[in-house]
Design a protein around this nucleic acid. Sequence first.
DNA 1: TCCCTTAGTGTAGAAAATACACAGTATATT
DNA 2: AATATACTGTGTATTTTCTACACTAAGGGA
Lengths: 231, 231
Amino acid sequence: MQENLPKFDSVFTIDCVIFGFDEGELKILLIERNEEPFKGWWALPGYYVEQEESIDHGAGRILYELTGLRDIYMEQLYTFGDVDRHPQGRVITVAYFAMIRLNGQKELKPVNTYARKAFWHPVNELPKLAYDHTKIFERSLEKIRRKISYQPIAFELLPEKFTLTQLQHLYELILNTKLDKRNFRKKMLNYGILKELDEKQRGVSYRAATLYKFDKRKYARLFQKELSFNK
Amino acid sequence: MQENLPKFDSVFTIDCVIFGFDEGELKILLIERNEEPFKGWWALPGYYVEQEESIDHGAGRILYELTGLRDIYMEQLYTFGDVDRHPQGRVITVAYFAMIRLNGQKELKPVNTYARKAFWHPVNELPKLAYDHTKIFERSLEKIRRKISYQPIAFELLPEKFTLTQLQHLYELILNTKLDKRNFRKKMLNYGILKELDEKQRGVSYRAATLYKFDKRKYARLFQKELSFNK
DNA sequence: TCCCTTAGTGTAGAAAATACACAGTATATT
DNA sequence: AATATACTGTGTATTTTCTACACTAAGGGA
């Protein structure tokens, strides 16, 4: 089939930066390596691209094997192709990032056994990562920081129903800044992409906040109107 | 060297979308294919990644072979990895875009003979392209459209000395919109990233405009302050 | 000198961004 | 029942940025 095309003697992989929002912290999912190289180090989950799957499909597959979740928000981040990035030879890696809803107790149900060693790590106190994974992670953080300012990706990390304060906290975490409560609410509600529910927060020992949903239909109608947050 | 790693039986290439600004038009460099598949079609210039070079290096090499130019602004765009994108087998392609200064008469001096068949095509009247190259091109256009609004990449397409009107025309072309002359100048000059020269435009049969330079040092000092253009 | 063409300039009104503080309400505690 | 606690939810005035808009200045060509 490919007899006319020169082969490239290398390894082709996908690595994923998987973001979650849990206990007020932004976290990513890391795997502890139990083989050389980098035995005992933490690394981004990743795997080889299969011969007969697209790279997007490969990224989705890896995420599924790791978490048991499907239909997750994922996006290609960047391709890392330096010659010396892997000690055992030439490896080219397409990095993806994903955002998943942790929903409190919802435990991950890995399909693949290697995923047993996956744990959430707060992004503010990451260990040193294997290979060039720190670089990959940093790039993913820059990307979501930029992206959250003009597209509604934050909702991917929140439960389906959330309060405006939760949403604001998440923006503050990702943007690493303080936002003004009144201005944030004014602006966010003005976009017209949130649906106010009749429901209130439960289980808090103070005034319960109104819950909101992200309204995908309204957002689509705005034709990707860009959100922007300065202060 | 790579005995521990599974091989990926596929072809790995780089394609480049090379932008130029010439005669008031935004153009890209295309190659006419004289082999099957897509014999006689136009395609983005591209080539295989060498075994011992980084993909960034490969992109720079391809551009050099094609144009004789080095130290050109290039950036990785996206990696295309669908299974069926190449009729002869699995090909994964990292796309780059580049912006080069055409400077009027400065002809390209291709190093590689295959580059003889490269010609500039205005982006507004592109032919159908081979493979999924139309998709790649469209993505590159979206990217520079977004990017020009917050980073000074337009200067990469202009001669070193340019007038504010030339700069505005280029913004208008890329953004595909009209901009207000007074507002554009006010804003652009306010950024403080242009150096006004003592020199004037020459060879025009009307009042000669002042020439400006992009001041990289000042821009760097602003620490990537973001430019933005609405109207 | 006149004509042609583009350069270069200011201001007022509208919209968006920002800064800022307190009363309301649900729950827990005594 | 009263009180303490903790967070919700709201408005306005000021500053900044955005937008719309039109004429004089300058240079070259006829």
